[in-house]
Simulated assay, not measured.
Amino acid sequence: MSAQASPRSQSSSRSQTTLLSIGQVLARLTPEFPDLAPSKLRFLEDQGLVAPSRTPSGYRKFSAADVERVRYVLTLQRDHYLPLKVILGHLEQVDAGEVLPFTAGNVVSDGPSILRVDRRLARRELESSTGASRTLVQEAIAASLVPAAEPYDEQAVRVVRALVELQRFGIEPRHLRGMRASADREASLIESAVRPVLGRRGEGKPKAAEAARDIAGQIASIREVLGRDAIERITR
């Protein structure tokens, strides 16, 4: 009679059936992240953000937790424009139990499982969820602060909510029209800076994307400092 497998070996056997190849991970995540590619997954591993197991022949295998971790990282990149080094530091704190996973925007957490909930709103839903009037949303569209086409995502919700608050101080969307032009100029500057990296083979695209986010973060830091200086001058 053969010996029965131990609970650990049974658990290991069951977990092996849930491990996914890179191709299977892409099949799960590319509907949410169309630009995801094998090179991006390898880059995330190289940066220490995910640690898939390896088969004896060296193939990467991702658990369900690995997939959710990748989804969480990609969501923070896409929806919150966080550089990978910032996300890595945050994940290290989460793993150590020092902080909770982000719950802002599209990222929510329930215990060890990190899930994402998409918000795709029609114009009327955007208005009702933010307390904005139809006129305010129309003016925001005219000022190129939110897109004209439905559906609207979490970023549009954040912008419109901010506009509702600014309206209390007499600041209207038309007063912020120059912000889109400024953002476009910054985007052109960033694109020029990362273009040499984009031309490289292999890891060029994910490295360029990470460099772009890093540059955007540094520009945002400068903008924040300048804004604080302006406020201090006003309130002296």
Rank of each mutant, 00 (worst) to 15 (best):
R14C: 03
S15P: 00
S15N: 10
T17F: 00
L19V: 03
L20Y: 00
S21M: 03
S21G: 14
I22V: 15
Q24K: 13
V25L: 03
R28W: 03
T30V: 10
F33R: 06
L36P: 00
L36K: 12
A37T: 14
S39L: 02
K40R: 11
K40N: 06
R42L: 14
F43V: 06
F43T: 08
L44W: 12
L44M: 15
D46A: 11
D46T: 07
D46S: 12
Q47I: 00
V50A: 07
A51W: 01
R54L: 05
P56H: 05
S57G: 15
S57Q: 11
G58W: 08
F62G: 05
S63W: 01
D66Y: 02
V67W: 04
E68Y: 01
V70I: 15
V70L: 08
V70D: 09
R71M: 08
Y72T: 09
Y72L: 07
V73G: 09
L74E: 13
L74R: 10
T75N: 02
L76H: 01
Q77F: 08
R78C: 05
R78T: 13
D79Y: 15
D79S: 15
H80Q: 15
H80I: 01
H80F: 06
Y81W: 08
Y81N: 09
Y81I: 04
P83V: 09
K85R: 14
V86F: 03
L88C: 07
G89S: 08
H90S: 11
L91D: 05
E92V: 06
A96K: 10
G97E: 05
E98W: 01
E98Y: 00
L100V: 11
P101I: 14
P101M: 15
T103K: 10
V107R: 11
V107M: 09
S109C: 05
D110R: 07
P112L: 05
I114Y: 05
D118P: 13
R119L: 09
R119V: 14
R120S: 11
A122N: 07
A122L: 10
E125G: 07
E125K: 09
L126W: 04
T130C: 07
T130L: 01
G131F: 03
G131P: 02
R134W: 01
R134A: 14
L136E: 07
Q138F: 04
I141M: 10
A142Y: 04
V146S: 03
E150M: 06
P151D: 08
P151S: 04
E154P: 00
A156D: 13
R158Q: 15
V160W: 00
R161L: 01
R161W: 01
R161N: 09
